[in-house]
Design a protein around this nucleic acid. Structure first.
Lengths: 264, 264
DNA sequence: CATATTCGAGTACGTCGTACGCGAACTCTA
DNA sequence: TAGAGTTCGCGTACGACGTACTCGAATATG
């Protein structure tokens, strides 16, 4: 028998890779690489040239090895991606809540930290979570972020839901923002150029009375602030609405017995 | 000169396709297909076998034509996708607000309608918007949904932001839900099987004290309700929080002069 | 030194989007 | 009616992609 050769879809094998739990027998030729290096190279490529150009061949080139060599360290691209996710999740750091600034401040912090993470590694946005890779990075991040809403009177399920809500929002908002930018570059047109190219064509076909609201709001929304700041304002608006919504839920609950938290 | 041959990235050409604004010269061989049929076939394929199996070859097979024939009707796959998006956007219908149920009811309606749309066409979740295809379907949908928050005292920019917030939430939540399901099927393991496979391995490496909160909440959150209902509760929680957040913003504003709206 | 085991990686297969070019079908003009 | 001009259908081909298979090279143990 040679390899245990559990397929790419085996969660147990993936866990071994995530936690670097593997016992080499000592026999045979020594590996010339470590999983670590493969993951680093992959992240480097994805960061530099975008997620579309993340291919096994490119990663192998980056490392100066043959393409198939990667498969000695990783069962396939999907799992490699999972490991990359776990790896960069370990980048996030939260200060301990010095001075008891309150849960709202902490949750806002979570939002901003994650937004920065997504901007640093846009390829995080290309695949959704759904059964997250339970490696050290992801778990540490989850733990740290849960503590933002710990002890404010929420049940465990509600804590998870609230955090999921904030993280999901940041993901979606950041993704939209970056996708917008990407299309601008792909078309080679700024937003203004895009609009002024389209406007005359639209004029010819669009029923401006039937869709009066869309026309009014659409033009206002895209011209009120200019370009990028638009998206920035939208991000802030959405985030504050979500925090408001969580706040009214928290305050609507009975006085929480455990560890009251100074919120405003 | 043969084709005007504007590349796949030309927004003006895309608009022509979206609105079916094209003047055939009448010369030359008659086309054996209409754009309509190409789009329908593509949607059919994507709905049936998932977005990953949406390829030009499959669409062509579905229509019984050669692959390259499609390129007579569509400049490339990306634009075809845009047209598909516009097409299914035309599916949504909203009742006129009979009885003045209020903006909150209407916005909730928007959320549920969009969730249903995403579940009917999961491939909508694979590409993000970012410069949406401004076809008749998308514009009609945008207009109808803006009317849910029209006349309640928001500025145009705020109306757009509020709608974007709700739509983004539904997108992200639905995507997570479906991705979770997909992974279950890919692994061939139910959630319980997945957990019970992982638990012993995790036990060996996980520092349960350092990550006490994650362990507690993680297990509670995934076992409190069973499986699918979990996600259902999370969806509802998030949606209500967002609506609460918008509500507190609306109520916090000065009495709106134009067309007061019965809320609650 | 023989044997067992592990690693590196070349080759190859099936998929994808799509550029190019040519024959067939069609309308118009002379 | 003959030709010219135009448009459509689509076969062929190229360069990517993920990865299964296979085999020689390297290394440890007996």
């Amino acid at each position: 028998m040679t390899d245990a050769s559990t397929g790419p879809g085996d969660p147990a094998r993936t866990l071994e890779l995530l936690w670097d739990t593997r016992e080499r027998s000592g026999l045979g030729r020594k590996p010339g690489l470590r999983l670590d290096q493969v993951v680093s190279a992959a992240i480097e490529v994805a960061d530099a040239d975008g997620p579309d150009s993340l291919s096994m061949r490119r990663v192998a080139d980056q490392l100066g090895v043959g393409t198939m060599t990667l498969y000695r360290y990783v069962p396939g691209k999907a799992v490699l991606f999972d490991i990359m996710v776990d790896r960069v999740s370990a980048e996030v750091r939260y200060d301990v809540d010095s001075g008891g600034a309150g849960w709202r401040f902490r949750l806002e912090q979570v939002a901003r930290v994650n937004r920065a993470l997504f901007e640093r590694h846009p390829w995080l946005l290309t695949h959704l979570p759904g059964r997250p890779p339970l490696g050290p990075g992801v778990i540490a991040k989850y733990d740290a972020e849960l503590r933002a809403v710990e002890g404010i009177g929420l049940t465990d399920v509600e804590m998870d839901s609230a955090l999921t809500l904030v993280l999901g929002y940041v993901r979606d908002a950041t993704a939209s923002l970056l996708e917008w930018k990407k299309r601008s570059e792909a078309d080679g047109q700024s937003d203004n150029e895009w609009w002024s190219t389209l406007a005359p064509h639209l004029d010819r076909v669009l029923d401006r009375e039937r869709y009066a609201v869309a026309v009014r709001v659409g033009t206002t929304a895209t011209t009120h602030y200019d370009g990028v700041h638009d998206a920035e304002h939208a991000f802030e608006f959405g985030l504050q609405r979500i925090l408001d919504g969580i706040a009214s839920f928290v305050h609507g609950k009975k006085p929480h017995s455990v560890r009251p938290d100074p919120d405003r």
